[in-house]
Amino acid sequence: HNLTITQGKLFFHYNPKLCLSEIHKMEEVSGTKGRQERNDIALKTNGDQASCENELLKFSYIRTSFDKILLRWEPYWPPDFRDLLGFMLFYKEAPYQNVTEFDGQDACGSNSWTVVDIDPPLRSNDPKSQNHPGWLMRGLKPWTQYAIFVKTLVTFSDERRTYGAKSDIIYVQTDATNPSVPLDPISVSNSSSQIILKWKPPSDPNGNITHYLVFWERQAEDSELFELDYCLKGLKLPSRTWSPPFESEDSQKHNQSEYEDSAGECCSCPKTDSQILKELEESSFRKTFEDYLHNVVFVPRKTSSGTGAEDPRPSRKRRSLGDVGNVTVAVPTVAAFPNTSSTSVPTSPEEHRPFEKVVNKESLVISGLRHFTGYRIELQACNQDTPEERCSVAAYVSARTMPEAKADDIVGPVTHEIFENNVVHLMWQEPKEPNGLIVLYEVSYRRYGDEELHLCVSRKHFALERGCRLRGLSPGNYSVRIRATSLAGNGSWTEPTYFYVTDYLDVPSNIA
């Protein structure tokens, strides 16, 4: 807008934040220059609390790290170098490059900038070799853009010569660093050979998330399962459950009422301010606690030095998902009996873990797994792929695949051998790939016309006998059925096997 004052003059007093240069501009645009008398524009009460600059400061050096910015700028000295009290560095987070010096300023003089007072450097006698002032900004957020400017702080001049310097606002972004852990990993099994893994992005990506790394490792069953005799009275049979499938998407929606109208769909109840505040506090606490764990609990591995020492970490090797089922080394339970199943799973520490690289999504279907087997899954978020990966501390989750139908069934015939004193040795093959492992066998036998009897055969007993022995049988026709019990439950009964026990007292003698 054009402003013209045809008559009258300007009068400025007691404006401590208004620089004289701005008042002189007002004289020019209003056409009143030359009308004012000496005392109409006070030299001592206008701009006496402001830094009124008329020179431009330029930054000469900028260096960044993930949490620091090192700045240096060209030296500046007023005509009387004693008038320079120091520099004021202003900075704040700036997602967009549209910041002005006066953003967030209120009537009390406060604003949204963080201000650092910096002492002037030592003055050199040689004007050509003056030290460049600077400042190291610490405690910054990774991968965050900051708006920065600097200006001088000078003393009051009796001659009211307006001098000083100020830089333009520059924008500097800190470097990326390792992201925080992925949030809320959930693993479920939808079949006997697959596990579905879902997660949420890290709360602090500290860069642009480029991919996720998912490692999985087959877990050995508890050692007590191999040692305890679950045929003993009072000892509860062990059981394991597989990871249940995901709930429906509708039930997972946030901010939804727990109660549904019987007449149909209901609208979600909005969260109160107290609920939102509580969630923010919980989120802040979780982030602080995660940072504490990362800094205190997890110790970084030592990389190899120039002395030739090897990095103890196993090298990563990509495998196809079809090879995942046989990740671990199978060892027989008892070496003397080769027909026992290889369900003991000690994992070799030198073995390469299978892994998958996930790009542009937060889910993965891990296939080719062994049925009813526990897996430990390790999830890392990465925001750099080359020249070397920059990934987060791992988040861990466990899951067990679903049982395989008929995996616990005894394959092959049940054979028998009759000894003296009416002892019958029953023999059968253990299931080759049971659900988890076989903890015991149930032997059901009966003599024709009598009630059915049951015998429990422990895992250890089966390994020693290759089956079991029935003792003290009365003469007669017998039928026997056997079924295995694994961590997933009972298998199917075998087809009945028949044998006849004679009275050993009636056996004919070869003595003449």
Rank of each mutant, 00 (worst) to 15 (best):
N206R: 02
N206H: 09
Y212F: 14
Y212K: 00
F215I: 08
F215H: 06
F215T: 04
E217D: 14
S223T: 08
E224Y: 15
E224A: 10
L225M: 10
E227F: 09
L228W: 11
L228R: 09
D229V: 05
C231S: 03
C231L: 02
L237R: 14
S243I: 08
E247Q: 14
D250T: 10
S251A: 06
N255D: 08
Y259P: 07
D261N: 12
S262A: 05
A263E: 11
C267K: 08
C269R: 07
T272M: 11
Q275G: 10
I276Y: 11
E279L: 14
S283H: 14
S284L: 09
K287S: 06
R301Q: 15
K302D: 15
T303Y: 15
G306F: 11
T307I: 03
D311P: 05
P314K: 14
S315D: 08
S320E: 07
S320H: 13
L321R: 07
G322K: 06
D323S: 04
V324L: 08
G325T: 12
T328C: 08
T328L: 12
P332K: 04
P332C: 06
T333S: 03
V334I: 14
A335R: 12
P338L: 11
T340F: 12
S341G: 08
S344N: 06
T347H: 12
E351S: 14
R353I: 15
P354I: 14
F355W: 14
V359T: 12
K361L: 08
L369Q: 02
F372T: 03
T373I: 13
A381W: 01
C382L: 00
Q384V: 10
D385Q: 14
T386N: 10
E388Q: 12
R390F: 06
Y396R: 08
Y396C: 06
V397K: 12
S398P: 07
A399R: 08
P403W: 12
E404L: 03
K406A: 15
A407V: 06
D409F: 10
I410R: 02
E417C: 05
E417N: 03
I418F: 08
F419T: 15
V424P: 01
L426I: 00
M427S: 12
Q429S: 15
P431N: 04
G436E: 03
G436N: 03
L437N: 08
I438W: 03
S444T: 11
R446P: 00
R447T: 08
D450Y: 14
L455Y: 11
C456I: 02
F462H: 13
C468E: 01
G472V: 07
G472D: 11
L473G: 01
S474W: 10
P475G: 11
N477Y: 10
Y478R: 00
S479N: 02
I482N: 00
L487P: 06
G489I: 10
G491Q: 09
E495Q: 07
P496L: 05
V501C: 12
V501P: 02
T502E: 15
Y504T: 04
S509Q: 07
